[in-house]
Design a protein around this nucleic acid. Structure first.
Lengths: 140, 140
DNA sequence: GTTTATGCAAATTCTTTGCAATACT
DNA sequence: AGTATTGCAAAGAATTTGCATAAAC
């Protein structure tokens, strides 16, 4: 996994504490994170506004992507290696647990080809599967 | 198509003006509607709060469902005939145009079966396809 | 007549903007 | 040194809550 410093440099972003810490957090967590998750889990305190701005910067540079969610919360996750400057792969499959509301990227899963009606042109495909995650299924 | 009155009765909801008008609107529009779309398009004026409450009531009774969206706006659409009291089919395919931001349900499309990793249990599957709709593709 | 929905006011939450101080290159 | 980022204050959306009035059953 690439270090936050190198990742930032690669995307032509300045190496600030907030950005490094948030990137590190994304790399540690396999689950998608909402603004409030990030705010809570960062050991150093950063202003709420700074976190919003950092997330938007990361979105624009293609470091992270929005993760679909029925709960209304905006969640984000790191873009995989597939998303380089050259080629962006935007076939995201996410799984959200209905019990613990954790959302994870299932990077290995491929979305099968879908036949759109005449006239439609697909550019991005996102699949959200909701159900029970392994941990919650074990619980009573 | 079932009349709003009968549809409401079927879901054990009171037949009020606001509910009937909003249901009628959903039946006319094939696209998914956000709160603000509904507020704008209703001929009779209802309080913003009443519209919020109506949408939540419809959600709880399974008359409508949330439509996934990357823009952050919460959109809703009527549940198809497949969603009866007995059997709920929650395989939603939606298409959102990147130009006009219209979202429509593609009810006819089936989502191909997906193999989840060990331990995961799927209950609902949602597919969001983004791209250009037929109308926007014609434009220059 | 009883229960439920509506409208209004106000509170909460989420997100963005402006600007001076600070940190990065 | 010059430019971009941060924190703070405040503004602006989106959504929820409480309560009295009005409408549905």
């Amino acid at each position: 996994m690439m270090s936050p410093e190198i990742l930032l440099r690669k995307h032509k972003l300045r190496n600030t504490g907030c950005r490094k810490d948030i990137l590190k957090l994304f790399q540690q967590e396999k689950a998608a994170l909402a603004h409030c998750d990030i705010e809570k889990r960062l050991s150093h305190h950063y202003d709420r506004v700074t976190i919003y701005r950092t997330l938007n910067t990361f979105l624009e540079s293609g470091l992270i992507h929005k993760v679909l969610d029925h709960s209304g919360a905006t969640k984000y996750a790191l873009c995989g290696h597939e998303c380089s400057d050259i080629k962006h792969r935007h076939e995201h499959v996410h799984f959200q647990c209905k019990q613990c509301h954790t959302t994870e990227c299932l990077e290995r899963l491929e979305i099968p080809a879908i036949c759109l009606p005449e006239g439609y042109q697909a550019q991005e495909v996102n699949l959200l599967i909701e159900g029970l995650c392994p941990e919650c299924r074990k619980k009573p």
